[in-house]
Simulated assay, not measured.
Amino acid sequence: MPDSPSDTSGAPSDAELRARALLAEFPVVDGHNDLPWALRQQVGYDLDARDIATDQSAHLHTDLPRLRAGGVGAQYWSVYVRTDLAGDAAVRATLEQIDCVQRLLERYPADLAPATGAADLERARREGRVASLMGAEGGHSINSSLAVLRTFHALGVRYMTLTHNDNVPWADSATDVPGVGGLSPFGQEVVREMNRLGMLVDLSHVAATTMRDALDTSTAPVIFSHSSSRAVCDHPRNIPDDVLERLPANGGVAMVTFVPKFVLQAAVDWTAAADENLRERGFHHLDTGTEAMAAHAAFEERYPRPRATVSTVADHLDHMREVAGIDHLGIGGDYDGTAFTPDGLSDVSCYPRLIAELLTRGWSPADLAKLTWSNSVRVLGDAESVASGASA
């Protein structure tokens, strides 16, 4: 059976053709892609060894031909580093990640456009290039230093996820034991400084208490760069309804993610067992290298993996639209940051399949244009406006 809304010959359905036409005008702003980390892990940033101008489907979820095929118009490249890199080592590794993105921009200027603001996104759309922004994933990257935060902003980083999978001294993570009960006073200072700079506060990965504290503190819209609905799939990485309900007053955007263990309830327990299998074999549970993936495959052969689908992700968007409203939704696939993807959403070429599914569910072209493009451009512009007011 084809894994997209197509007929039995594999030809695109009418819905997918309409989705592609819509994306030609209102392309996807994707909130989170871990290509830089994959390039670090796989080839030590040797961009000749992973020339993304050509098909890299044997190694990556992302390359330029598939970004084009998927209708991607803007991408936040994650400059993520793992939390076992701490202190100055985390700062250095984040700088290396930023350097990787800058080298990609220099290498592929006809395809990738540097972007730090909403006007840059619109300019790139007119030029037919993929606007390229950066997001730092995890407050450990700044080593509790506002000076480092300001330096990252000066280098082009336009959001920071307050935590990754582990707490930082000033903020609690969704997947760690509570430490400070949300945001500490210094954590609130971090949020205020991000507002002043025009850097988006990203609340993916953080505890619900941290989400609520950040919403209480921030004077600018927040984002969830890659999170789904906790009411649909009860995983702590997802967004509770009471937080989604606050987005209209804040002006923020929740960008649905595709990671199966965050969108499909049946995948939660399976993934915990699969991660433990990796750790028992000496791998980090987020490792997507060749040997780790072979260990995953052997585990999956013994214990078949529950399969998320395009419809699974659409279920999250239906619920999130009902709770937060259409003006507060976006997309953050987390490609190249996950070992598994839903059936039908295997790589960055697949966004038209999700848009086609939503069309069949009655989503209007106007609503879909907000989901893919307008909401994310607006929220970045609003953060800039708050920063301009703060500096006036």
Rank of each mutant, 00 (worst) to 15 (best):
G10E: 13
S13F: 04
D14N: 12
D14I: 14
R20V: 15
P27S: 09
D30H: 02
V43L: 05
G44Q: 03
Y45G: 02
D48W: 08
D51W: 10
Q56W: 02
Q56E: 10
S57C: 14
H59E: 11
H61L: 09
P65H: 08
R66Y: 06
L67V: 05
G70K: 08
Y76A: 02
S78W: 01
R82L: 11
D84A: 07
L85Q: 14
G87P: 03
D88A: 15
V91M: 05
T94C: 15
Q97I: 10
Q102K: 15
L104V: 13
P109E: 08
A110Q: 14
L112I: 10
A113Q: 13
A115T: 14
G117K: 06
A118P: 11
A119T: 14
E127F: 05
A136N: 06
E137W: 13
G138S: 06
G139Y: 06
H140Q: 14
S144C: 13
S144G: 04
S144E: 15
A147F: 11
A147V: 14
L149E: 06
R158M: 14
M160C: 12
M160S: 12
T163D: 00
H164F: 12
N167S: 04
W170R: 13
D176K: 01
D176V: 00
G181I: 06
P185C: 09
F186S: 01
Q188A: 15
V190H: 13
N195E: 09
N195L: 07
R196I: 02
V201W: 03
V201F: 03
S204F: 11
A208Q: 14
A208M: 05
T210W: 03
M211Y: 11
L215W: 07
D216Y: 03
S218I: 09
S218K: 08
T219S: 12
A220C: 10
R230S: 08
R237T: 08
D241H: 10
L244F: 15
E245P: 03
A249I: 05
A254Q: 07
M255I: 12
V256F: 08
V256L: 07
V259F: 12
P260N: 02
K261Y: 11
V268Q: 03
D269V: 00
W270E: 00
W270Q: 00
W270G: 00
A272V: 04
A274E: 00
D275K: 01
E280P: 06
E280C: 12
G282H: 05
T290R: 12
M293T: 05
A297W: 02
A298H: 00
P306S: 10
T309R: 02
S311L: 01
S311Y: 02
T312F: 01
D318R: 05
R321V: 09
I326F: 04
G332V: 04
D334P: 07
G337M: 09
F340P: 00
G344R: 01
D347A: 04
D347M: 02
D347F: 09
E357W: 02
W363D: 09
S364F: 12
R378M: 02
V379Y: 05
S385T: 15
S388R: 15
G389K: 08
A390L: 14
S391Q: 08
